[in-house]
Design a protein around this nucleic acid. Structure first.
Length: 341
DNA sequence: AAAAACTGCAACCGCCAGATA
DNA sequence: CTATCTGGCGGTTGCAGTTTT
């Protein structure tokens, strides 16, 4: 278990290899051949672990390595092999003489993957982007437009009707209304709450089974969204009495303790997870970072687990992380994870 | 010209499976 | 049978060079 014994030893060099080190390793392998890597550093006079020597030899010093750009034939070959083998880089490399798994992996991640995505092909399946992916792309497009939109806005508060007109959900996807795009109500938007990605949440009422955002406006006219969300910096896990950053108690209007099966089990667990129900549907995308209650957070997506699909609303995992489960999540679909950064 | 953002790639990390003691 | 060692693998990180602002 743990680290390799060769790596535990003190004073082993790490990082980039110097020409002198390369020379020592090359000389040794040329003379004695590849054998027991763990004994190579000692015999070659290197302050490296055997694993590091092996990697340097395989990826850089080996005389049969082909260097330089990948040819079109190689690129096509990699694409075909990846379609069959997936991320089995070693197996792919075995089919391309002179290329290493690391080299192919880097080429894939930095070049081929992006190329496929630009062509509208899912790099994992090698098939055209699915509806689900399309929704994600829509989100990205949405935020691009949103940024442009706010960049040219004034600071007055929006009218309710304008808001409802501007932002609405479309059966799990999202749409910008034409009036927003044409800028007819552009000058109405620039409050902080709107600029916050969490402004665009769906407050489920329980009477809203299809997820249409009918309660958005009423919630918007509450004091602030920020006070209705857990403050990650000062969240008290020992206590189910939630307070916001200003010290005022959160009302059950904003949060309700989820009394479902998962709620009770996790609330009593050692990490003191607590489920809250607020019915959020965050409108942001993977990797986005933003300020939330004065705390920098990063948004991630991950698949909903087998039991998690029962959950709706917010689950606070610890002082720096919480999840948001959209209404009606199914196993395998996305939940929304926010990490403090 | 300087700073920030981006990109490519070398190297590291952690896990796993097979070999060996 | 169990523990440990080792090599192999895929994912990830860090950094240097390049491009953009």
């Amino acid at each position: 278990m743990g680290r390799h014994s060769c790596c535990v030893k003190q004073k082993l060099r790490k990082g980039l290899w110097s020409p002198e080190e390369d020379e020592k390793l090359l000389k040794y392998i040329t003379r004695f051949g590849v054998g027991c890597w763990s004994s190579v550093p000692k015999h070659a006079g290197l302050q490296r672990c055997g694993k590091s020597c092996r990697l340097r030899w395989i990826n850089y010093l080996r005389p049969d390595l082909k260097r330089g750009m990948f040819s079109q034939q190689e690129e096509d070959h990699i694409l075909n092999l990846h379609q069959v083998l997936g991320n089995r880089w070693a197996q792919i490399a075995a089919q391309l003489p002179g290329r290493t798994d690391n080299e192919i992996k880097n080429f894939w991640n930095s070049c081929l993957k992006k190329k496929l995505m630009r062509q509208g092909i899912d790099p994992n399946t090698h098939k055209p982007i699915t509806d689900k992916d399309y929704v994600k792309d829509e989100k990205i497009e949405f935020f691009k437009k949103k940024s442009e939109f706010f960049a040219s806005s004034s600071s007055s508060m929006p009218m309710a009707a304008e808001l409802e007109h501007a932002f609405h959900f479309n059966n799990g996807g999202l749409m910008l209304s034409s009036s927003m795009e044409t800028g007819l109500i552009r000058d109405s938007f620039l409050s902080k709450s709107i600029c916050d990605p969490l402004f665009l949440v769906e407050f489920q009422s329980g009477l809203d089974p299809i997820g249409y955002n009918s309660n958005l406006l009423a919630q918007f006219h509450q004091t602030s969204y920020e006070t209705s969300l857990p403050n990650l910096a000062s969240f008290d896990h020992q206590n189910t009495d939630f307070s916001d950053h200003s010290g005022s108690k959160l009302t059950t209007n904003s949060f309700m303790i989820n009394e479902g099966r998962e709620s009770s089990s996790t609330t009593n667990s050692s990490n003191m997870n607590t489920n809250l129900s607020a019915g959020f549907q965050p409108m942001t995308f993977e990797g986005e970072m933003f300020q939330f209650n004065g705390v920098n957070v990063k948004y991630e997506e991950r698949n909903v687990g087998q039991w998690e699909h029962h959950m709706h609303g917010v689950q606070v995992n610890n002082a720096s992380e919480f999840n948001i489960y959209p209404m009606g999540s199914l196993p395998g679909e996305y939940t929304h994870v926010y990490h403090q950064i």
